[in-house]
Every structure is written in C-alpha cells, then in structure tokens.
C-alpha cells in the first residue's frame, strides 16, 4: 500500500467533509474573501486601474471626510436602512391578511409575491414611469385630487424616498413570504389557549404570534438590512444618483468613482467600499453572534 492510500484509509471520515467543502471554499475564497482583502489594500493607493499604483496611505480616507457627496450617500444609506425596515411590519400585515383559506387564495398570494420575482431593473423602470411628470400614474392621481404634479425623481427633497418606495415593493413581498412560511408553523393550540384567556387582536399578535415568528423576523431583518445597504440597481436605473448627487448611496457612489466615465479612481472607490463593508460587518457580526447563541442554546 502506498503512503497516500494508507493516509486515506486511516482518515477517510476526517478528510471526506473537506473534500466536499473544497469547491465551495475555493469559490468563496476566489470571489469573496480574497477580493475583500484586495479592496482594502487598493484603498491605500491612487490607481486608475491600468497604470502605476501609487501608495498614498490614508489619503483616500482623508478625502472622503471632505467629500460632501460621500456624506450625502452615507446619510441616504441610513434613510434607506430605516425606511426599508418598514418592509417587516408591512410584510407581516400582508402575510396575516393572506394567511387564510378562501377560494383562490393561492392566486392572491402569487400576485403579492410577484414583485419579488421580477428583476429590480424592471421594478425601477415601472416606478420611473409611475413617477413620470407627464404621463405617470402618480401625477395623474395627484391632479385628479386637485394637487399640483410633483416630479419626484427630479426633486432633491423627494428623490431618495421615491426610490426607496420602489425598493420597498419587492422587499415587502419578500418579507411577506418569509412570514407566510412562519405562520404555517404557528401552533394553533397556543392561539386557542390564548383565546380562552381573553387575549385577542393586537395582544394576541404581540404576545403569542410574534414570539413564534421570531425565526422569520430574524431572517427578514437580515435580508432587509443587507438589501438596504447594498441598494444599487434602483439608483442606477431610476436616478443615477442624481439630481446633483442627492440620491447617492455608498454602493452606487463607489461604482461611479471606480468605474464610470468620471474617471477610474480605483483607490477612492475601494475606500468607499471599505466603509460600506465596515458598516455591514456590524450587522454580520450581530447575525453570527445570534446564530452562534441559537446553535449553542439547543
């Protein structure tokens, strides 16, 4: 027996899982882990993507501190985050509403789920038309009730909210599906026990049903936070960050600095990406800590 065969024979059980994990680990390393470190490294250079890299230390970060658009983007990301969280209660309400057995309920469920299935690009286009000052439904409706039209996407005051509402549409659908699945697992006898205790309506929801939906809430929270922080497609389709950078978010600003026609500032873009990564890291840390606690608690 050769040495290799003998090692294999003796440690089969220990080696096999790693063999199965290998393709995934390789992919994850090549496309996720290594690029993260590369980005962090690049953020300390000035680089146009083709020519010489020049090490400039913290200069990119110092420039960020002076960059108004960066702070607008940061602020908008916070607004996105806060408003995106509305997807949770809205999804829950929809799920509660759709969690019944009437004829054709599946059709209604599918219809409500539909926005999540279609591409963000399509969602962006649909909402661009919806807001269009000349033929959009939104302004047609405003005029019907006697208000003057608002060019939502051209107005600095409203543009971010307009895009967020477009983003909420599929996000609510996603949360709704998560909650619908969660509601399936709710114990009917607990609800009946509570009914005997004269608990109903909001108190039933709060004290009996929501605690049972905690796993669904947790997943919905995580995907919503991540979804808000990496918002990109809708900005790109609907506003391109405008007007005058007022609807910028970090992900899109990074792309604009690093890859768009304004110049290929790889280092500066990387610095923005690192800031975004740091923010996400807070949530990922929270996520992992919670997973770890749950695993241990079992």
């Amino acid at each position: 027996m050769s040495y290799v065969t003998r090692v294999w024979q003796d440690h089969k059980a220990a080696i096999t899982p790693w063999l199965f994990l290998l393709p995934g680990i390789l992919m994850f390393a090549i496309y996720i882990v290594i690029p993260i470190f590369q980005s962090i490294a690049i953020s300390f250079y000035r680089w146009d993507g083709l020519g010489e890299k020049t090490f400039i230390g913290w200069e990119n970060y110092r420039e960020l501190m002076r960059d108004d658009i960066f702070f607008t983007a940061l602020q908008n990301n916070v607004i996105w985050l806060v408003l995106y969280l509305l997807a949770l209660p809205a999804g829950l309400l929809l799920a509660l509403f759709l969690n019944q057995t009437t004829r054709g309920i599946r059709i209604y469920k599918s219809l409500f789920f539909f926005p999540f299935v279609i591409s963000q690009v399509v969602v962006g286009l649909v909402f661009s038309w919806f807001y269009d000052p000349s033929f959009g439904l939104f302004n047609t409706a405003l005029m019907k009730i006697g208000l003057s039209p608002i060019a939502v996407l051209a107005d600095e005051r409203y543009v971010t909210y307009g895009v967020i509402i477009a983003g909420l549409w599929p996000q609510i659908a996603y949360c709704m599906i998560l909650y619908l699945t969660g509601l399936n697992a709710v114990d009917g006898e607990q609800i009946e026990a509570a009914r005997l205790d004269n608990v109903r309506g909001w108190r039933m929801l709060w004290y009996v049903i929501l605690p049972q939906l905690r796993p669904a809430t947790f997943i919905a929270l995580v995907v919503t936070v991540i979804g808000a922080l990496r918002s990109f497609d809708l900005i790109s389709i609907m506003t391109g960050g405008g007007p005058w950078g007022s609807s910028q978010v970090l992900a899109y600003y990074m792309y604009e600095q690093a890859f768009s026609e304004y110049g290929f500032r790889m280092g500066y873009g990387a610095a923005i990406a690192v800031v975004l990564f740091a923010i996400m890291l807070i949530y990922i840390g929270f996520f992992l800590a919670k997973m770890y606690r749950d695993e241990k608690g079992r």
């Binding site: 004269n198 608990v199 605690p211």
Partner: peptide, 23 residues
C-alpha cells in the same frame, strides 16, 4: 390541551400567570 400548548418563550410562572396578567 393534548400538546400542552405552553408558550415556549415564557417561563413556567409567566405561562401560568399569562391569562391573569392579560386581564
């Protein structure tokens, strides 16, 4: 109930007192 129908997120004391607290 056959499956006990206890509220898993509450302690024994909280389970027993739930109805009274709610009312």
């Amino acid at each position: 109930f056959q499956t006990y129908a206890l509220y898993p997120h509450m302690t024994v004391a909280e389970n027993m007192s739930f109805g009274l607290r709610m009312n």
